[in-house]
Nucleic acid binder design. Structure first.
Lengths: 154, 154
DNA sequence: ATTGAATAATCCGAACTTCGTCATATCTGC
DNA sequence: GCAGATATGACGAAGTTCGGATTATTCAAT
């Protein structure tokens, strides 16, 4: 069931079809350009899930696999595989914890930590690139709008 | 090798660390909220690669697998698998073309076409949602900025 | 015409990923 | 203690990408 065509005449609160199309084209171009520039990054590319897992552990040291599974909405066994891979690469360690001997505390190794911050800096570099393409005076406005869109209640 | 910390003092053309962090957090929140709202879409979820393939064929009817492979930067055999899946679901047809009997012309079926436009409308709906969260007066500014970022030469 | 190289697409097998099922160890409440 | 819940890992099934080989066809040069 197609959406009704945007109404031009009203000038009410709805975005015009032209605005929608322009925004869509811009996003598409943007994603495309950065997807290509993305290639050629690290020693071994590292799975998307593994990256997410790594970053979660970086923010929640000594967490368990179940926490990550809940957070990412995936099966616990999938996280088990991911942590296996990360451990095999020497990026994290599994510690047995005192209070509950069923649980494992996941903690990043030195190298894992470095990888995590490198990953975050890569994300930041993307943001820096975007902001640098705007005039300094425009940046606050842009950030305010993106924030408004992201945190809008409804 | 970590990036140098953003310099606060200069006030030059570099974005501040605060701006970068705020923008990053907003994007993260945005992606997260829409990733969740994304679930529960269609009959059978359909692979990301398959979606890209479907949309490319929608824009370039009667193209060949090699075109798609070049465009998406993937192995030709991967596209073969993708078109297999799409054909098996009845979303596209392979036609033998007159001029070159090695080639196949990929064309969307009725249902594939519907699926493609539905997908595009889903993207549009996302753009509409974003724009509606801004005041009507702000929208042109936002679009102008995104366009500037996306098409910036450098 | 014929041969040989290049090209389009596909088939097959290897490696990897996600996830369901089962097994094991441990905790918690009675 | 004991029954049941919980955390984790082992194993296997299903699905995906991709490199290498294969088939069919076109093109170029003799």
């Amino acid at each position: 069931m197609p959406l009704p065509a945007a109404r031009y005449a009203t000038g009410m609160t709805k975005p015009t079809a032209d605005q929608i199309a322009t925004l869509g084209a811009a996003f598409q171009a943007f994603v495309r350009r950065f997807k290509l520039a993305d290639a050629g990054n690290f020693d071994k590319p590292l799975n998307e899930l593994d990256v997410q897992t790594l970053l979660y552990i970086a923010r929640h040291s000594d967490c368990g696999p179940t926490d990550i599974a809940r957070y990412l909405g995936l099966a616990a066994t999938t996280i088990s595989s991911a942590t296996d891979r990360l451990a095999k690469r020497g990026l994290l360690e599994r510690h047995r914890i005192e209070g509950d001997r069923r649980a494992v505390a996941l903690r990043l190794s030195e190298e894992g930590s470095a990888r995590a911050t490198a990953q975050l800096e890569a994300y930041n570099a993307l943001n820096v690139t975007m902001l640098e393409r705007l005039e300094p005076a425009e940046r606050e406005t842009f950030i305010r709008m993106v924030t408004k869109i992201a945190y809008h209640e409804d």
